[in-house]
Design a protein around this nucleic acid. Structure first.
Lengths: 344, 344
DNA sequence: TTTTTTTGCTTTATCGTTTTAGCTAAATAC
DNA sequence: GTATTTAGCTAAAACGATAAAGCAAAAAAA
C-alpha cells in the first residue's frame, strides 16, 4: 500500500495554472486585499475543494511560529475531576482551532518543571496549568518569559498571573452556612496539608462563617496527609466523632469526601443519624450511598471554558499583559446527608 | 520582560564558529559517520549544553523527521476508564520520549475522522485509537496509508491492524463460570447495542460458557441503548427480575454496572439477596455499596503500556508491516455480590 | 615529487507554507 | 501621445532544521 501523497498547495496551483502564492492568498481569504479577480478566486476555491486540499500545518506553523497546540498540565489526568476539566478544555480548544497536549505533574515541582520544558519545546502556543505546591517561582518565571499562561483550579493571588478557578471562599461559606441553618453547631472541617491558595480560601470561608455565627469555639480544622490518607482519615474522624462529638463534617475535596465515606462505613457511623456531612464535587458515590450526600458543586464547564478563552486571548494578543481573573460561583447541592437537626 | 529568543542551531553554530550542518550532525549523534574531529564534537556539545539548545520540532518535522508526538483518540477522556488509560499511556510515552495529544470522539465516526485528520496534520508520529462503531474502513485506510497505528480496548480481528486489548472472551467466561460455580443458573447478560468486537466477544464468552454448562435455555442477552440508558436499564432489569426470575446478572461495562446499581437501588432490589451481579472494571461505587461488587478487572497498566510499546516499535520500524496482537488476561475480583447460592 | 586517498568540514537543496517585494499589462491622467 | 496609476498576478525569501553533494587541506601512496 503506497502512502498516498498529500495534496499540496503546489498541486492545486498547477491544476489551475497559477502560482502557489495566489492559491495561498485565496485560501486564506486575502483575495480582496491582494485584489485577485473574482473568477480566479472561484476557480481556485473550486479546485481546492475538488482536490480535497488541506494545508500542512507543520509548514504553516514553521512559517508563522504557531502550532495551534495548547499544553494542559494537571496533577493527574486519571483523577475524574481533572479528566472532566480536560474534556471541557479539549472541547473549547477544538472549537477555537486548537489541539490539547496533556501531562500529569503528580503534585511534584520537578515534574512540573520538566513537563513545562517539554511542552514549550514541542512549541505549544500556551499553557493551562494546575500549579502544585511550591511552584510559584517556577510559574512566575514562565509567565515573565511571556509564554501565554493561565492557571486553573488554583491560583497565586500575589502575582499577576491569570487564572480561572472556583470562588473557594464562597464554597465553604455556603456549606457552613447551610449546616448552621440546618441547626448544626459543632461543625468540623477536614482538609489536607498544603500552602495552596484554593485550600486556604476554603478554610477561611469556613472559619469566618463560623465566627460570624458566634460559633468560634467549635472551629476545628483537621489536615490529613495526601499520602497515607485512609489511615489518617480514620484517626481524624475517630477523634472528631468520639472525642469532640462533632455534629457535622465538611470535606474539602472530592477525594477526602470519598475517603471519609469509606472510613465512616468501616466505623459503622451512620449518615446523617450519627453525623452530617458536606462533600465537594459530584461523585457517583454520593448518590449511591444509602443517603445522598450534600455537596458543593463546581461549575466545571465554566471554569474550564474560561481558562481556554483567557489563554487563547493571551495567545492572540501577546502584546497586552492583562491579568484575567475568573472566579466561578459554587453551587450547593442539598442531599440527605444534612437534614434539619431536629428531624433526626 | 522581553520574550527570550529561542536558541537556534545557527546560534550554537555561530558561537563555535562552524556551520549549522556540523552542529546538527553532532547533536544527532552522526559525528562518527561524518568523521567529525573528536575535539570538535566535544566543543559543539558543550556549547549546545551551555546555551540550552533544543531543536525546533516543527522545523525538524517539516524536514521529514519526527515530532515525538503521539495522538491518543478515546471516546471520552472524562470517562474514568479512558482517563486511567490516558494516564498510563502518558507515563509510558514520556518514558520513551514522547508527548501525548488527546482527543475524544464521542463514539462518533465523523468526529473520529476529523480528529485523526487534525492529529495527522499536527504531525503526530503515530496514533493510539479506541475505534468507534463503523470506523473499520476509516481506520483501515489510515493504516494502509502507512501511518503507525495501534488500536486499544477494541479491535478489528479481520484486519491486520495491531491492537492491545482485554481477552474479552475470557472475561465473561470467567464471570459466567464463577456464577455457575456459586450455584446460579438463570444468569442474564446486559450489554449495549454495537457491532464492536469487544462486546461481541464478551457476549460469546457468556453464551458459550452457558452452553457448555448445559444452561442454554437460560441464555438471555439484553441490549440497552447508550443514550437513554437509565430508562432502558430499568425496563430491562424489571423484565429480567420480575418476569424472567433471573438469579444473576452480568453487566458488560462499568457504566452499565453503575447504572444497573442505581436502578436496582431505586427498585428496592437487594444485592445479593434478591439478585447476584458481576460488574466490569473497578469503581469506587463497587466498594461503597452495601455489599461489595464482584467484577472483572482489566489490567489497564498492561493494556495501555503494550499499546504504547507496539506503537513506538512501529514508528521506529515503519518498514516492517507486522501485526502485533496483545490480549491481556482479565482477573475476577470476588466481592459480596455473588455469594454461594445456598448461603443466601 | 607527484598523485591519490582520507580527513574534516561547508555549501546547497529541501520540506510546504506565507509574506514581501516586484513585475507586466491595462486603464487612466495629463 | 507619453506618464502615471491600478489591477492582477508571480518570483523569491523566509521559517529552522536535515541530507546530499562538494571541496580544500593534509596524509598516504606511488
Amino acid at each position: 500500500m503506497a502512502k498516498e501523497k498529500r495534496v499540496l498547495l503546489k498541486d492545486v496551483a498547477d491544476s489551475v495554472g497559477v502560482s502557489t502564492t495566489l492559491v495561498s492568498i485565496v485560501l486564506n481569504g486575502k483575495a480582496k486585499q491582494y485584489r485577485i479577480a473574482d473568477e480566479m478566486v472561484e476557480k481556485v476555491i473550486k479546485a481546492a475543494m475538488e482536490m480535497n486540499y488541506s494545508p500542512n500545518l507543520i509548514a504553516r506553523n514553521l512559517r508563522g511560529g504557531k502550532t495551534q497546540l495548547i499544553g494542559l498540565i494537571v496533577t493527574d489526568i486519571s483523577n475524574p475531576f481533572y479528566s472532566a476539566i480536560a474534556r471541557i478544555v479539549e472541547n473549547r480548544a477544538n472549537e477555537l482551532g486548537y489541539t490539547v497536549v496533556f501531562s500529569s505533574s503528580d503534585e511534584d515541582l520537578d515534574n512540573t518543571k520538566r513537563l513545562i520544558d517539554v511542552l514549550l519545546n514541542k512549541g505549544v502556543d500556551g499553557l493551562i496549568v494546575v500549579p502544585c505546591d511550591g511552584s510559584e517561582d517556577l510559574i512566575k518565571s514562565i509567565h515573565e518569559n511571556n509564554t501565554p499562561l493561565v492557571l486553573i483550579d488554583r491560583n497565586f493571588p500575589e502575582t499577576d498571573i491569570s487564572f480561572s478557578c472556583l470562588n473557594n471562599y464562597r464554597a465553604t461559606e455556603l456549606a457552613t452556612r447551610h449546616l448552621i441553618e440546618q441547626g448544626y453547631e459543632n461543625i468540623a472541617l477536614v482538609g489536607y496539608k498544603t500552602g495552596m491558595n484554593h485550600i486556604l480560601d476554603r478554610i477561611r470561608g469556613y472559619e469566618e462563617t463560623m465566627k460570624s455565627a458566634g460559633l468560634s469555639k467549635y472551629i476545628q480544622v483537621k489536615k490529613v496527609n495526601l499520602l497515607n490518607t485512609k489511615v489518617e482519615m480514620s484517626n481524624v474522624l475517630d477523634v472528631l466523632i468520639n472525642k469532640k462529638k462533632v455534629d457535622a463534617v465538611i470535606f474539602l475535596t472530592n477525594m477526602l469526601a470519598v475517603t471519609g465515606l469509606y472510613c465512616l462505613k468501616d466505623m459503622h457511623v451512620r449518615i446523617p443519624e450519627d453525623i452530617a456531612m458536606v462533600g465537594f464535587n459530584r461523585n457517583d458515590v454520593f448518590n449511591l450511598f444509602p443517603s445522598t450526600i450534600t455537596h458543593i458543586r463546581q461549575p466545571l464547564e465554566l471554569i474550564a471554558t474560561q481558562a481556554v478563552n483567557i489563554l487563547v486571548d493571551k495567545i492572540n494578543h501577546s502584546e497586552l499583559e492583562i491579568k484575567s481573573m475568573s472566579f466561578s460561583e459554587p453551587q450547593l447541592i442539598v442531599g440527605a446527608s444534612t437534614p434539619n437537626k431536629k428531624d433526626i
